[in-house]
Design a protein around this nucleic acid. Structure first.
Lengths: 163, 163
DNA sequence: TATTGTTATACTCTATAACTATA
DNA sequence: TATAGTTATAGAGTATAACAATA
């Protein structure tokens, strides 16, 4: 994750032919999608750094969190919630199972499905990393007042819930 | 691009073992990064649909826009601005060149570098698609007042500029 | 010695088709 | 006939190493 917007500042030569040194990025910067993406990348970048020691990617944390908070959730439900296609969940789940973080149990009403449950180790790791994420969240919005933070989330929801 | 958060609503069976039907996603939804990412994905999803007829992806539009607004910009500068690694720009630039949208000219002061310039066709396509993007932006934030839109962008900048 | 643009390549992420067992 | 989970695989996106030409 690198700094996205660093204008080159080599003020060495003023060429007769116009070669830009300070870049005009006004239009892209006026777009919600552009700014939302940059903000997400910035936060998620730090997120990845902090999660790495625990061997979790962002998506792993999301999966483990949803399973912990929703014991018995199915793979299909995870797929819907996180917009991950079912085939791409198989490996993640298998890996977390192999690490002893989660386990599968037969679904009581549907023998096709399987309920997913966090193990004690999984719950512990989730609690640990949730704390890390909460701390990061506080830091990331240190520039924002609590009210601004609330406003930001409310406005972001408005943007993605209208579709 | 699918709906990310659709709680399964099969109200058929109330099982004795607790199998969640309405999913608890409260923690993830409380995170700036999560909401920013969802908002970005929502807007960019529509973005992709609208750009497809012009044969441009989001990144292509960004590149074409920066070249149009900064005639003579170098590949290295694009790389910094858009957080795209230099090797991954080569193909894009070659393709846009083959489509007659941009052209390369020798850099006046640095024979290693090349200035990138939009052709007449490139400028026309950029103007067309910028209009499409502006329209989309208006629609995407139709739920927001102009002031809210301004606030949203200001707060997003605060989040990603603090690093 | 450092930088620009490039090649080749590897790795990750995401998407599609098809199968099985159940519903 | 439709759905849950899975396999295999294809494609897109992103990353690193190394090179020639030039600074």
């Amino acid at each position: 994750m690198s700094t996205v917007l660093e204008a080159s500042t080599e003020a060495t030569c003023l060429s007769p032919v116009e070669i830009p040194t300070a870049i005009d990025n006004a239009f892209l910067e006026s777009l919600i999608g552009y700014n939302a993406r940059r903000a997400a990348l910035a936060v998620i970048g730090v997120f990845m750094e902090r999660m790495a020691p625990y061997g979790l990617r962002v998506v792993d944390f999301s999966v483990l969190t949803l399973i912990t908070h929703n014991p018995g959730i199915t793979s299909r439900q995870l797929s819907s919630m996180l917009a991950i296609l079912p085939p791409n969940l198989v490996g993640m789940i298998r890996q977390m199972q192999a690490r002893g973080l989660i386990e599968k149990r037969p679904h009581p009403n549907d023998r096709r499905a399987q309920g997913l449950y966090a193990t004690a180790a999984g719950e512990q790791l989730q609690a640990q990393t949730q704390q890390v994420v909460s701390t990061l969240e506080s830091e990331a919005v240190t520039q924002l007042t609590p009210e601004e933070r609330h406003t930001l989330i409310r406005l972001l929801r408005k943007v993605y819930e209208f579709r």
